[in-house]
Nucleic acid binder design. Structure first.
Lengths: 125, 125
DNA sequence: TAGGCCAGTATCGTTGAAGTAACCAGTATC
DNA sequence: GATACTGGTTACTTCAACGATACTGGCCTA
């Protein structure tokens, strides 16, 4: 069974939101991570992504579908059910995303320290 | 001795310009790669980056400097000479950039094929 | 004295991605 | 009859990044 997604998965207060890596557009990387453990529904994705609007989520998912990263399966039920799932191609991105996360864990403190240091220089000018 | 940069280093016609990975803003990743083999001067960077305007190059380099990715060394000569060089932090990004390049080489054809396939669907609708 | 080299600034214009807010159809439940 | 749920759509607006173009200052060379 697939566990529900942690709503704090992408806490905007988390310092790693300053990471200099981006997969595709703003949301693609996060969506790939959300789908890592199995298929998810539209509204299920909205929870951890928090501030994403349905318009942008739709557009991003359509682009990912076009590029062969996810599949979209609509079930003829009521209320409607649509599931998004990673393809093998989409799944191959996880390695890179994890590499970027590891890099961030390791070096983000250094970036933030450098940023603070240069702020101080400008503050006391 | 450091070899001069290949002006075709970032050919905009190269299909890998469609890669879904981005380091920092639009130019940061390319600049890191340009500096991989040693320090470079401002105008030296402009050549392979082709379409970058001096304004944007300056802004990007300043941001990279602030984040501790590059150092800027100005020599009191004439004509003026300024050299940009990767820090250890900036250098640590090369691993990730290479991983992204490898991924692209491997999977970009699949993305482009998926894109073409979905184009056909919409064309004949 | 005219122009070139280098490392940028200054000013203005463009554009596209993202956000805001409202709305929709069909069913089910209260 | 009113409301809620799901998976979106539509129209309008905003904003930051990016780009185009021109210009600067000090020195050197022709």
């Amino acid at each position: 069974m697939i566990e529900p997604l942690d709503p704090d998965m992408f806490d905007p207060m988390c310092p790693s939101s300053a990471i200099p890596f981006q997969i595709g557009d703003k949301w693609t990387g996060m969506i790939v991570r959300c789908l890592a453990d199995g298929p998810r529904r539209f509204t299920e994705l909205r929870v951890p992504l928090r501030t994403i609007t349905p318009k942008v989520l739709t557009a991003t998912l359509r682009a990912m579908q076009r590029d062969g990263l996810v599949t979209r399966t609509a079930y003829d039920e009521n209320p409607p059910r649509v599931e998004y799932e990673l393809t093998e191609l989409g799944r191959s991105m996880l390695i890179l995303i994890d590499a970027a996360r590891t890099w961030s864990e390791q070096y983000l403190p250094a970036i933030l320290a450098a940023r603070r240091a240069s702020e101080e220089l400008t503050t006391f000018r």
